[in-house]
Simulated assay, not measured.
Amino acid sequence: MSTEQTTLAGGFSYTLTRTLQAPAVKVWRAWTTPEQYAQWAYAAVGSVEMDVRPGGAWKATMVTPDGGQFPLTGSYLEVVENRLLVVGMDVPGRPAPAAMTMELDEQDGHHTRIELRQTCDTAEERDMAEQGSTMLLDSLGVFLTDGASG
């Protein structure tokens, strides 16, 4: 795993990369199928809805480690099946969605390099988003390795 943080004129960014033990199509399905996403992404069962196409909407209710729940909504800004997903997340009080980019690069049919990138307005927002994304990647790796994603 590698992590990179940068501060740009337009905000505070992070990039996380991992190599997952699964082909890109399997990683893509885990990220874009509501039933699979709910199993590894800390979402409340039955709360995930996804219309995975440019301009399509998504929503999920996330569950925190202490049992708290908070709803998230957004849209898909860019979709290239098995390769690229740019997810817009609605942020109260912010005119434009916060975008997170997920890129997949299949290595050998059995491994996929995943890269998550996001730019935030403040260092604190970046650090919180990076922590959440790290938790997601950790959980995704376990989900794919356990074979739960069939």
Rank of each mutant, 00 (worst) to 15 (best):
V86F: 09
T3E: 09
V52H: 07
A99Q: 08
M135Y: 13
V45R: 04
W40V: 00
T15I: 14
G109F: 00
G11R: 03
G93T: 05
T3V: 12
E130I: 04
E124R: 06
Q21M: 09
E49P: 14
T61S: 15
T134W: 14
R53K: 15
T19Y: 01
T119Y: 05
P71E: 13
L8P: 01
T112G: 11
L136Y: 06
R29N: 09
L104N: 11
W28K: 11
P54A: 10
T19M: 03
L16Y: 10
Q5Y: 13
D51Y: 11
S13E: 07
V80H: 14
P92N: 00
T33S: 11
T119P: 04
V91F: 04
W40C: 01
V80M: 12
I114V: 04
M100K: 02
D66H: 03
E81M: 10
D90I: 11
T17L: 02
M100I: 04
S13C: 08
V48L: 00
Y76S: 05
L140A: 08
V27S: 11
M100Q: 04
L16W: 04
G109M: 02
A22Q: 02
R94A: 08
G10L: 03
T32F: 10
I114T: 01
D138P: 06
E78G: 13
V87E: 05
T61A: 15
M89C: 12
